[in-house]
Design a protein around this nucleic acid. Sequence first.
DNA 1: CCTACCGATCGGTAGG
DNA 2: CCTACCGATCGGTAGG
Lengths: 211, 211
Amino acid sequence: MSAPTTDGRLLRGEQTRQAILRRAADIASVDGLEGLSIGRLATELGVSKSGVFAHFGSKEELQIATVGAARDVFIAEVISPAFEHPPGLLRLWTLADGWLRFGERPAFEGGCFFCSVDAEFDARPGRVHDAIADNYRQWVALLERAVTDAQQLGEVAADEDPAQLAFELDAFARAANVAGRLEDLDEVYARARRAVVARLRAVAADPRALP
Amino acid sequence: MSAPTTDGRLLRGEQTRQAILRRAADIASVDGLEGLSIGRLATELGVSKSGVFAHFGSKEELQIATVGAARDVFIAEVISPAFEHPPGLLRLWTLADGWLRFGERPAFEGGCFFCSVDAEFDARPGRVHDAIADNYRQWVALLERAVTDAQQLGEVAADEDPAQLAFELDAFARAANVAGRLEDLDEVYARARRAVVARLRAVAADPRALP
DNA sequence: CCTACCGATCGGTAGG
DNA sequence: CCTACCGATCGGTAGG
């Protein structure tokens, strides 16, 4: 058992784990985190049930790990692009638009992962609830911070309540994710985007800075 | 077997059915329509499994019947009170506020029934999806109609897009239902209500007509 | 990572 | 409406 062999095993294990979580997040975006089953994951990935189970130790741990994997994708697709812009109105807009895109051209099969699982677990107790509640709070706190930054730069009206604006921007994308899949996706998202743009224009010092 | 005996049976059967659906809607508001199980319903209601099953014939029919039962409650608690007012801004406000209340002081254990099951089934094919999509479309169509009525009476700005306003009013309550259960319920609903009021004030011919 | 297995529960059926 | 049952699948374990 030389070091490279051990490293190779660890590496392969990590790749398998990532493959499981990738598939798990897709399934959960359609069927929910309770719709996940270890047997189904094993069959779809061509491994044994215990081969999946061994990576997590319980279904609850699998669910929590899936939330973490979706969070990584969210950071890469929504947060990071916005943070390529300096603080200000443009960063705020990029966050709001990225959040819309996260359900519109979704990274996961069933649309916005968090819109699905937040609604699934909001009323249940337990560690999965707590994990998604943490993620929600961090996300709206980040949106709020983007508002206050823009206010301090004079790019957003100073009398606007950051928590209020963050709630509303979040709400439009959340509602669009559901409504778009019950009606017409493109039409509903166009509507949600108009709502976001109108809301930001109303508080922007220079509305021409918006798309 | 006289007529009264038969009627008594039918009546008792209908009462049992209603009791099942009442409990089913509560369960679904917390654990989703897939979280429903015939065995669990039977145990909780003190009847046999086949006693529940016989009323619906399949789990899918039970789910669809549960959606219908929740729809009846929604009509009684949200639609009917608004239609005690004549067409106009006040009716529109009453609809939007009733929709907020439906998740805030919820008729069902887990909060707004439709917010939960819409998110659960939006990305899945099948008859349950189709049933909730129908309900969603009818609800936003009714909201839109309340807007156009108010516009024709000169109580809402004529250049406002009714579908846009309906989408936004629906969105605030939908987001509050989830966010309120991940954060602080009262605080989040106060925020959602401020959003609804601000949006309606901005388009109202006479803002003093609003609460 | 595997095979083989556990008890529990699932939706649904048979027969009354 | 009931009891009694079906095959399938669930999460999880034993042993390797």
